[in-house]
């Protein structure tokens, strides 16, 4: 099989593959910076919690309007924002730390979601909410994903400085300005927005994979923030494209293939990454002159 057949032909021949590629590349653009900031803010598991939190909203949307893109998106968005803002406000207004507040909110939200799903009875269509349909992205969904990515990149451009300073020294930012709270809530809203966009392609439970795995991979290759974001974005894009190819050639489901390719990249980074990877620790180079 020629490299063309292996890498290009699937996309050249099939429109659904091209659509899937555009979708995952757009998601990857937003996922890069999002994942890096989640990781640096020690919120790696927050994305996972938010993924669960979105479920009841999407289910309610489905309950009212069936498999309607906008109803499910709106529902997921409302549920995710309620949980994110609720937990953020509780963390800042009371003495409870945000991780505990978020756990409380998302567990309630998830239970509600499961309840709604089971009241409706088992329904194959609802699997869409859980597992996504990256190979069946229609125009509206692609526009939605691209729109969310655009908003995300613009928001990062606006909030960059506040996000960095709040990561480095939150009490300093709080002492000189009030933008810390605003930027934190805005950041949580971006997390929700991207997970809602991604669940159409990858499902609510896997959407976070494309966000966190490339970020964790990048950490083993770079120290500089800008490089980290660029690397994470590239890894996410490559995982998306390669995952689609793997799924095409092996006849495997596309969503899990994408996440597994990202997982392989992470595993390779853990072993061979030059910045603190296993091998770099086992074979230290000679120390430098003082």
């Amino acid at each position: 099989m020629s490299p063309y057949d292996l890498l290009v032909a699937p996309f050249a021949e099939f429109e659904f593959m091209r659509r899937a590629l555009v979708g995952v590349l757009a998601l990857a653009l937003g996922a890069g910076p999002l994942g890096i900031f989640l990781m640096l803010r020690r919120m790696s598991l927050t994305g996972d919690a938010m993924g669960h939190a979105i479920l009841p909203g999407a289910a309610i949307g489905f309950l009212f309007a069936g498999l309607n893109l906008y109803a499910m998106t709106l529902g997921g968005l409302i549920a995710g924002l309620l949980v994110a803002v609720g937990a953020g406000v509780v963390a800042r207004a009371t003495r409870m730390k945000e991780d505990a507040a978020l756990a409380a909110f998302y567990l309630v939200s998830l239970a509600l979601g499961v309840l709604i799903v089971s009241v409706r009875g088992s329904n194959v269509d609802l699997l869409h909410v859980l597992f996504g349909t990256v190979l069946g992205l229609d125009d509206d969904t692609l526009v939605l994903i691209a729109g969310i990515t655009t908003i995300t990149l613009l928001a990062f451009a606006f909030l960059w400085r506040a996000l960095v300073v709040e990561c480095v020294d939150p009490s300093f930012l709080a002492s000189v300005s009030r933008s810390g709270g605003v930027s934190h809530i805005a950041f949580l809203a971006l997390v929700v927005l991207n997970l809602v966009g991604a669940f159409h392609a990858l499902g609510t439970l896997r959407a976070v994979g494309l966000v966190m795995l490339p970020a964790a991979t990048a950490r083993f290759f770079a120290r500089d923030l800008t490089v980290l974001v660029a690397l994470a974005t590239l890894v996410a894009m490559a995982s998306g494209a390669l995952g689609l190819l793997v799924s095409y050639h092996l006849g495997a489901p596309a969503g899990p293939s994408i996440i597994l390719v990202a997982g392989l990249a992470y595993a390779a980074a853990v072993v061979a990454g030059p910045v603190g990877g296993l091998l770099s620790r086992r074979a230290p180079r000679r120390h430098l002159e003082a």
Partner: peptide, 15 residues
């Protein structure tokens, strides 16, 4: 006790 996150990749200049 300054709450500077020493794990964050920021330079002395930027700090």
């Amino acid at each position: 006790a300054a709450e500077v996150d020493l794990g964050f990749p920021i330079s002395v200049y930027d700090l």
